[in-house]
Design a protein around this nucleic acid. Structure first.
Lengths: 161, 161
DNA sequence: TCTTGCGGTCGATTTGATCCATTGCAAAAA
DNA sequence: TTTTTGCAATGGATCAAATCGACCGCAAGA
């Protein structure tokens, strides 16, 4: 993981469809070299995938919310397969605190959200919900600093650490 | 937005680097047709970007957490530019409830997280933090149902709605 | 009926990705 | 010190994929 790898990751986080040529120009190395580095980062499990992101509003998912739920330990075996199959659940984490699971969801309407919460409560346990008014930072990866405007020499020097 | 568009979106959510050829084969239309549809979805603001996702653990961000913070209305002008500049904040939402902002963060260690929380509290207001034990559903987009195994005829019929 | 516009196909061209032989360099072995 | 080994890169040839432009068919509105 040198500066070039970090720059590749930054660029692919911003635009996963960037061509090897673009990456190659920005990193001052050849495109086969970029391809080899990307393959290595994927194999190492550092880059885990490439995903298009969509505007939920435009797809008529007007309500985003966070739902916390209290779960008995024995319910987890049923809960985890369940959450994976519900497309409205866009993230789910097991967390510290009074509620054991915290999930992020999107729904067409508050009515549909309410419906889902009722279903959750009857199947599992007590919930607590916060509805999202606005999103100031949309889900993103970490961005490496001090990599964005490096000269050819800076990058090359670093490569042979 | 017909079934073909939905299938394209599904596929690009799963693999944003899928080639036009792959998409074209799966949708039973030519690759220029796919390119035109993607361009249209982007221009309409339905597809908002393509992002590589990384394994935070492998990059030594061992602690994921959700931080809620109480904010005076007048503090928002300062808060929003701030959260955008902190790379550790991977999502931030304004929500209903006792705490006005809910953010998802990643840090190298609990010490670094603690440090950040102290900084937040001194700059803004009261916080409440939940640390993530495990993630059963990693951040994902919505997946359209009944699109994954359609025949050539199904897709074509739908195109001329 | 005629026209307009959209969304599609097909083949030609251009662009980008991949393969392979070769090089340079640094670290470990002789 | 010299030799060897292995890794990461290059550059050109080859191959695959994306783009362009001409053309077609169909449905909606003039």
């Amino acid at each position: 993981m040198d500066q070039i790898d970090r720059k590749i990751i930054n660029m692919l986080e911003q635009n996963a469809r960037a061509s090897l040529k673009e990456l190659s120009a920005a990193c001052y190395i050849s495109s086969p070299a970029i391809a080899a580095r990307i393959a290595k980062l994927e194999k190492a499990g550092i880059i885990t995938g490439y995903h298009a992101s969509v505007n939920f509003e435009k797809l008529d998912y007007h309500v985003k919310a966070f739902i916390q739920i209290q779960l008995e330990p024995r319910q987890k075996g049923e809960f985890y397969p369940f959450v994976k199959t519900v497309p409205n659940i866009i993230e789910c984490n097991c967390v510290t605190g009074d509620y054991s699971e915290l999930m992020e969801v999107v729904f067409e309407s508050t009515a549909a959200l309410d419906n889902f919460i009722n279903d959750l409560q009857s199947r599992f346990g007590k919930t607590s919900t916060q509805i999202v008014f606005s999103t100031s930072v949309d889900h993103r990866g970490i961005t490496f600093q001090n990599v964005d405007d490096l000269s050819a020499d800076d990058l090359k020097d670093d490569a042979h650490h």
